[in-house]
Design a protein around this nucleic acid. Structure first.
Length: 508
RNA sequence: GCGCUAAUAGUCUAGUGGUAUGACUUCGGCUUUCCAAGCCGACAACCCGGGUUCAAUUCCCGGUUGGCGCACCA
């Protein structure tokens, strides 16, 4: 196939129409960093708003915080993030185990190798014929893994600081105050959105694998004894989700298992209600964003794939043109983080439940804004045989919601159209006004960036106080009284009425 | 991070040891009473640094960024 890749087509539109571009482009760029333009920013905000509404504001015992992006070394020392990745590592070519090069050399030879350059470490490994301690396999060359961005805090560089590799840590280290705010009663959740940073070895695939990314996370704290007493689980129990179990992965499989959240917990497919609740919520959110059920599943990660803090991840994987890609991670972090921070900070993170002191367990849905946004772009992308493209965005994620056009500039139509546009903006719609060129071209421009509705003002608007409204997906047009415009638009956007319910006007 | 490969207007491209082709887009004008029409005009580019050369966008070296493969991916 010499056909242009879907991702390239999407990148093309993103560049031309103000969605996304590379950071520091005029200076040659910086790998793994992207800038969101006017339309990209509007979409991002809508995705975050949608999440905030259903995952935070609709809940009684979930609150959002905003933590610091840069934190002192001690935080990541305790969390375990620093341990494995601030040192030169070697990897076994055979069993793929990773080892700290300097520690391995010291263990075998007794010589201190700390702080040596990579070449010297390689030399020592070769000289002493050091092999993999597990399987005796050959070792790779030493490599520096700085997966966290390091800096110094204070003008004289008093202590080391790191950009956070996940937003979650702010929540764990503030646990005492947050628990007090929640009056030391379980369950409760703390949410956070914001940027996280990972100095990826090899950024790839546009905004999929990047070094700065936006997360939407919740740490849901619950009593492990009551892991199947989620207060609102019955509201999602009947929702269907697609799951790929570990067993299916071992035996081979063709289609994911479709099962309701309730049945999945009852049959032990998903470990508990707290995790299952979020899988169901995420599936609902994906559907709302225009990503069909058939295009994603939740995969139970194999043991060796799960992060160091999780006893089992269910990742939401989307069926993208570049293969299945994790766009949401759902982890069971148990009491791992609270225990680590309690020990390191000499604090106590216990909560009294039924006269017993317990350390809460944590279920964590971690959604990547950038990856979700890219998935929306791919799944809403449409192209016809002429090569014209458009985005079939649901209104809830469309960067602009309505475009207002005068059929022509003259005879006062432009002024009238601008007035209607202003009123729509005042009413809270994301409206866009354009009077240049021919009407057909303006429709095409609107389609390309996925504006769901276009309003055209013509002579009948002046004479009979009606406007035409054009539906992006069907290209059908209806004529409605100007005074009904805001209401009709609202009903269409909320899905309370269908475009077909209104009388269609015939095209020439 | 390794290997291969590429880099020319906003986008896609042609081409060259003597400053660069075309299309689309954008903007202005004419035309135009509902789906990228037409006509006129305008704006706008050789990734960065060094070397060779009288002269480098072109050749060489290094870097950056992208793509593919491997590896990695909390």
């Amino acid at each position: 196939m010499t056909e242009e890749r879907l991702m390239d087509k999407i990148i093309d539109v993103c560049l031309r129409r103000g969605f996304i571009s590379q950071t520091a482009e005029i200076y040659g760029g910086a790998g793994g960093f992207y800038e969101y333009g006017p339309l990209g920013t509007l979409m991002r905000q809508k995705i975050i708003d949608l999440w905030r509404q259903s995952f935070v504001l609709d809940e009684d015992r979930v609150f959002e915080i905003k933590g610091s992006v840069l934190m002192p070394e001690s935080v990541f020392q305790a969390s375990g993030h620093l341990d494995s990745f601030d040192d030169p590592l070697v990897q076994c070519e055979k069993c793929k185990s990773m080892f700290k090069a300097d520690e391995l050399i010291k263990k075998i030879t007794g010589k201190t190798a700390e702080g040596l350059p990579l070449d010297d470490l390689d030399e020592l490994i070769k000289e002493n014929q050091i092999a993999c301690p597990n399987c005796q396999g050959g070792l790779s060359k030493a490599r520096q893994f700085n997966l966290m961005f390091k800096t110094e805090i204070g003008s004289t560089g008093g202590i080391n600081g790191y950009l956070r590799p996940e937003t979650a840590q702010n929540i764990f280290i503030n646990f005492k105050r947050l628990a007090a705010f929640m009056r030391n009663k379980l369950p409760f959740g703390i949410a956070q959105t914001g940027p996280s940073f990972r100095n990826e070895i090899s950024p790839r695939n546009f905004i999929i694998r990047v070094r700065e990314f936006e997360q939407m996370e919740i740490e849901m704290f619950y009593d492990p004894e009551k892991e199947n007493e989620h207060p609102r689980f019955d509201e999602v129990a009947d929702l269907e989700i697609n799951i790929v179990t570990r067993e299916m992965q071992e035996k081979g499989w063709e289609k994911p298992m479709q099962v309701s959240a309730g049945v999945a917990v009852a049959e032990g497919v998903i470990p508990n209600q707290y995790l299952a609740y979020y899988l169901a919520m995420e599936a609902e959110m994906m559907r709302a964003l225009g990503i069909p059920d058939t295009e994603f599943w939740f995969r139970h990660m194999q043991d060796h794939e799960a992060p160091h803090y999780s006893i089992g991840n269910f990742d939401l994987e989307a069926n993208l043109s570049i293969g299945h890609m994790e766009i949401v991670g759902n982890a069971l972090r148990t009491d791992y983080d609270l225990m680590k921070h309690a020990k390191a900070s000499k604090s106590s993170f216990e909560i009294v439940v039924d006269n017993k002191k317990i350390v809460p367990h944590v279920a964590e849905p971690s959604l990547g804004v950038d990856r979700i946004l890219y998935t929306v772009l791919e799944k809403c992308f449409r192209e016809d045989e002429r090569g014209w493209t458009w985005f079939q965005f649901p209104t809830i994620v469309a960067p602009l919601e309505v475009a207002v056009y005068p059929l022509m500039k003259k005879d006062g139509l432009a002024e009238l159209a601008y007035e209607i546009h202003s009123e729509l903006k005042d009413a809270g719609y994301l409206s866009f006004y354009d009077e240049s060129g021919k009407i057909g071209k303006r429709y095409a421009r609107a389609d390309e960036i996925g504006i769901p509705y276009c309003i055209t003002i013509d002579y009948e608007t002046k004479d009979k106080y009606t406007v035409t409204m054009r539906d992006r997906d069907s290209m059908k047009q209806i004529r409605i009284p100007t005074e009904d415009l805001e209401v009709v638009l609202g009903e269409l956007m909320e899905g309370e009425s269908e475009f077909d319910e209104f009388s269609e006007i015939n095209k020439e």
